[in-house]
Design a protein around this nucleic acid. Sequence first.
DNA 1: ATGACACACGTTATATCGTTACGCAATGTG
DNA 2: CACATTGCGTAACGATATAACGTGTGTCAT
Lengths: 140, 140
Amino acid sequence: MSGTPVSIQDLTKNQAMVFGALSTAEGPLSAYAILDRLRDQGFRAPPQVYRALEKLVEVGLVHRLESLNAFVACSHPACSGQATHGHEMIAFIICESCAKVTEINDSALADQLTHLARVQDFALRKTTVELRGLCRACSA
Amino acid sequence: MSGTPVSIQDLTKNQAMVFGALSTAEGPLSAYAILDRLRDQGFRAPPQVYRALEKLVEVGLVHRLESLNAFVACSHPACSGQATHGHEMIAFIICESCAKVTEINDSALADQLTHLARVQDFALRKTTVELRGLCRACSA
DNA sequence: ATGACACACGTTATATCGTTACGCAATGTG
DNA sequence: CACATTGCGTAACGATATAACGTGTGTCAT
Ligand SMILES: [Zn+2]
Ligand SMILES: [Zn+2]
Ligand SMILES: [Zn+2]
Ligand SMILES: [Zn+2]
């Protein structure tokens, strides 16, 4: 490993395949759903998927949705080559009907959370913010 | 059962036992950890725990921590008899070292999240906000 | 009372999600 | 070359959650 590996170009074969599966998916995929989609490309067992996901999440190309036990490709504009955006203080808006996920990077929210932690003397490492409900289309 | 069932007094035997296990625990417990603690009180299988948890979460006596796949008793002052506080827009601060969980009910944060949803024309149903890191004691 | 229903419960099995452990091949370094 | 590192494949296992079915018990209208 030389320097910081962040770009899509630095991905290994498996990582690229998993990222591809998530990128072309319409919504979040569970690890096993990814596995199923990649079976005819040689994937056979969970560790192959989880290892790739671990790296992809680490570099910020993929996010994990805790409330869904699933993963999505980052939708940040030029994220496909950039490291972790901001400080990983991302909010996700998840439609419970159509599974559409919107990724939100709101600095006011980030400030708010930072403040909350600060008040408690808490050394913030990672935040999970997931809003569930119905998107405009589905609640119409 | 008549009217709205919210108080601890309205709980069934199993629900009361699960709530008791969570209340006396120092930190969050997984469903299986609860099961283990209740084995000598007659619990034998996961559904008994999950069914009780479902109800307890529904009435707000227990919260689920998505990022931990675990559950905590509500720490709201008089929650032991009251229904869902606010609109379930609770933030949890979770220490990754000592597992201590702090439950926070911040109206500014709630407004913030409500606003975020509003901007997206999103019908908010439930929010998950979990802050992970090190508590004051553990980061010292 | 008797049947219909709802509810809590017990039990078995199964589904879904995630990790450990082991071995091997390719690569890079002294 | 010896040696460490990295990515990968595979088998087995562990952890989390639900489905499906049956039983008893109370309530209530007939
Ligand atoms: Zn992103
Ligand atoms: Zn939708
Ligand atoms: Zn609470
Ligand atoms: Zn701590």
